[in-house]
Design a protein around this nucleic acid. Structure first.
Lengths: 339, 339
DNA sequence: TTGAAAGCGCTAACAG
DNA sequence: CTGTTAGCGCTTTCAA
C-alpha cells in the first residue's frame, strides 16, 4: 500500500548504470559519481518518479531517523511546548520527533523503555513521573535515552531536570516578601512517590521556614494539575471558609484554573489573592490577569536534552552519564504584587 | 544502534525449529504450530530476550503501523486537540499517530503528499490551508489520504471539513441579534487563496446581509491567528479610535488574544464589547470571561477522519471519495450577552 | 504442523 | 569513477 512501486533497480536499468550508482546519486555521496552519469541518473529518477524506500534504507542502515518523546500528558501545555522545542531542534539535524503518552503510570513508563518500543527510535526521551530508581535499574537499553523529571534515577542515564526546590522557594519567598501569609499550595504533596510535587512542596516549606512563617497544613492541597481540578480545589477551599491571600500552583495549568475560580468567587487578583504558577507556559502571557510564574529554564532544558541525545547518537556511548539542571527564574507578571 | 541484536534466526536455532515457526509463534498465527513447539519457541524467545525488528517486518509486509497528521501549526490549541482525539481513536486500532508541521505553505503541503513522505505511513491526514485544487490534482498517492480543511480539493480525495460559513453566520447573527452593530472580524479576509478565513468571512457577511446590517470594512482585519497577533490588532483598532461593540475572532486563540487586549484597554466584556471565537478549544473554558465560541463538530470530525482512513486502509481503495461536514454549533459562555 | 527458498529495497564493502 | 556481491530481519509462497 505504502510501497513506492519504482525501485532503485528500475532507475538503474533505465539509466544504464548499477544500483549502487543510483544510490550514490540519491544520497549525494561526494566524488563517487561523474557529472554526466549523475545527470543521466537524475533524469531517470525524475522520469520514473522514483522515491527512496525509507523502510528499506532503515533496515540496511539500522537507523530510523526518529526520536521518541514519552510524556504523561498530551493535553498539558507544558509537554506540548517541550515537544515543540525538541522537534524544532531535532529537525535541524534531520531527525523527526514522535510523541507518545505514558499516562503517567509506572508500567507504561517501563514499557516505553522496553526494547521493542525503543527499537523504533534512534533516541528516546522519557519523562519519568511515577517511576522509581529500582525499576529503571533493571533496564539498560541499546538506544540512547535521556530521562527528564525529578525522580532519582540510576546514574547511568543522562538526566535533565528542573530546579524544582529552588523555583518553588523563589516563588514562595517572593509571595511572603510581598506580605502574603496564608499561601495555598495547589497540588502540593509530601508523598515521596511523586517527586515533582514533593520537591516543589519542599521549596514552599523551605521558604516559609527561612521567613519564619508557619505553614497551615490545611492550605496544602494535593490535586491533579488540570485547570479543571485546580478550579475545583480553590472553589472548595472558599466553600470551606478557609482564609488565604495567595495561591502557589504547582503548574501553570493549575494556576489558570485557580484564576478562573477566583474570578468566580469575586476575589480580586492580585489585590486580595496573589497567584503564581510554575512552567512558564505560553497561555500565561494572555490570561487575565497575566500569570506570574516560574520559568524552569525551558529553553536550556530543550538544548540540554538535544545535546545529550545527539552526543550518544553520534556514537559517544561510553562517556559517563550527565545530569543537567538549569536554574529556575521567577517571571513576574500581573497576578502578583511583587516589585 | 536501535537494532535488536537477537534475531529470529537465533531463536529458531535455540528452539531447534525453523525461522518460519518462530515467526508463526511471534505472530500468534492460529493453527500453524503445535502447542509443544509453541512453548519451546516461547521459552527460547524469553531466554534470549528476542523482540521483533519492526523495520524488517515493515519492509516485508509493506505496512508501518503509523498514521501521519500534517498540520500548519503545532502550537495552536486546535491542532493539538485534534491530534489528541485522532491519536486516541487510532490507538484503539493499534495505530500510532505522528504529528508533522507543514508551516502552512503550499510547497510544504505538497511535499507532505509526496510519495517519499507518505511511504513512512499507512495513512495520512493533511490539513490543507494553502493548497489549491490544481496542485493537488497532479498527486495521486498510493497511501490513503484524508484531507481536512476547506480548500476545494479534487474529488478523488476523502475530505472532512467544517461548516465554516454556517458557523460564522450563527456567531455573527447571534451577535447582531443581541444588539451589536459594529463587529470586528478578527482575522477576516476575502482572499480566495486562504479558504478558511474567506469562508468564515463569508458567513460574517451573510449574517449582516440577512439582518439588513452594514459591514464596516475597516472592522474586517486580516491577521495571523496567534493570541499575540490578535492582541495587537485589537490594540491598534482602539488606538485608531475605531468604534466597535463586538469582536468575532476567526479562531479561539485569536479570541483569547482579543480578550487580553480588551482587558488592557479597560473595555468590559461582554458589557461594552462582546467576543466570540471559533474552534471550541479547551482553554476557552477557563478564560476570564469564559469564551463563547463555535464548536465546528470536533468529535464528529475526528470520528469521520478515522472512519474514512480505516476503511481505505482496510483495503477499500475503490469506493468513491466521500466528503463529510458535521454541523457547527454555537457554544454560549460569558463573553457574549446572548440569552 | 513444519520447513526451504525467495525475496522486500536498499547500502557497506570491496573490486575493478 | 563504477560495478559486484552479500546481506539487513522478516514473511510470503509453496512444498513436505
Amino acid at each position: 500500500m505504502a510501497a513506492a512501486r519504482v525501485t532503485i533497480e528500475d532507475v538503474a536499468r533505465r539509466a544504464g548504470v548499477s544500483n549502487m550508482t543510483v544510490s550514490n546519486v540519491v544520497n549525494r555521496r561526494p566524488g563517487r559519481v561523474g557529472e554526466a552519469t549523475r545527470q543521466r541518473v537524475q533524469q531517470a529518477i525524475d522520469e520514473l518518479g522514483y522515491r527512496v524506500n525509507v523502510t528499506a534504507r532503515q533496515l540496511r542502515s539500522g537507523r530510523t531517523g526518529t526520536v521518541g518523546l514519552a510524556v504523561p500528558e498530551l493535553t498539558s501545555g507544558y509537554f506540548v511546548e517541550l515537544g515543540h522545542r525538541l522537534a524544532e531542534r531535532l529537525a535541524a539535524h534531520g531527525l523527526r520527533l514522535v510523541l507518545e503518552r505514558t499516562a503517567g503510570d509506572l508500567a507504561a513508563e517501563l514499557d516505553a523503555l522496553s526494547a521493542s518500543r525503543l527499537d523504533a527510535y534512534d533516541g528516546f526521551v522519557l519523562s519519568v513521573v511515577a517511576g522509581d530508581a529500582e525499576a529503571l535499574d533493571s533496564i539498560s537499553p541499546a538506544t540512547p535515552v535521556v530521562l527528564i523529571g525529578e525522580q532519582t534515577v540510576p546514574d547511568r542515564f543522562d538526566h535533565v531536570l528542573m530546579d524544582n526546590v529552588d523555583g518553588a522557594r523563589q516563588a514562595t519567598a517572593a509571595l511572603l516578601a510581598s506580605g502574603a501569609r496564608r499561601i495555598v499550595l495547589l497540588g502540593g504533596s509530601d508523598d515521596p512517590a511523586w517527586s515533582m510535587p514533593r520537591l516543589r512542596t519542599q521549596g514552599y516549606r523551605d521558604a516559609h521556614r527561612r521567613a519564619g512563617a508557619a505553614v497551615d497544613e490545611e492550605l496544602v492541597r494535593s490535586s491533579s494539575f488540570t485547570a479543571g481540578a485546580a478550579q475545583q480545589v480553590v472553589t472548595d477551599l472558599a466553600a470551606e471558609g478557609r482564609d488565604f491571600d495567595a495561591v502557589f500552583a504547582l503548574t501553570d495549568s493549575a494556576a489558570l484554573g485557580a484564576l478562573r475560580a477566583l474570578a468566580d468567587l469575586g476575589r480580586a487578583v492580585p489585590g486580595e489573592v496573589q497567584v503564581v504558577g510554575f512552567d512558564d507556559v505560553a497561555a500565561g502571557r494572555f490570561s487575565t490577569p497575566r500569570l506570574s510564574t516560574v520559568d524552569p529554564g525551558n529553553e536550556a532544558m530543550a538544548d540540554a536534552i538535544c545535546d545529550l541525545l545527539l552526543e550518544r547518537m553520534a556514537g559517544d556511548v561510553d562517556r559517563p552519564a550527565r545530569v543537567v539542571m538549569p536554574p529556575a527564574r521567577l517571571v513576574l507578571r500581573e497576578s502578583t504584587r511583587f516589585s
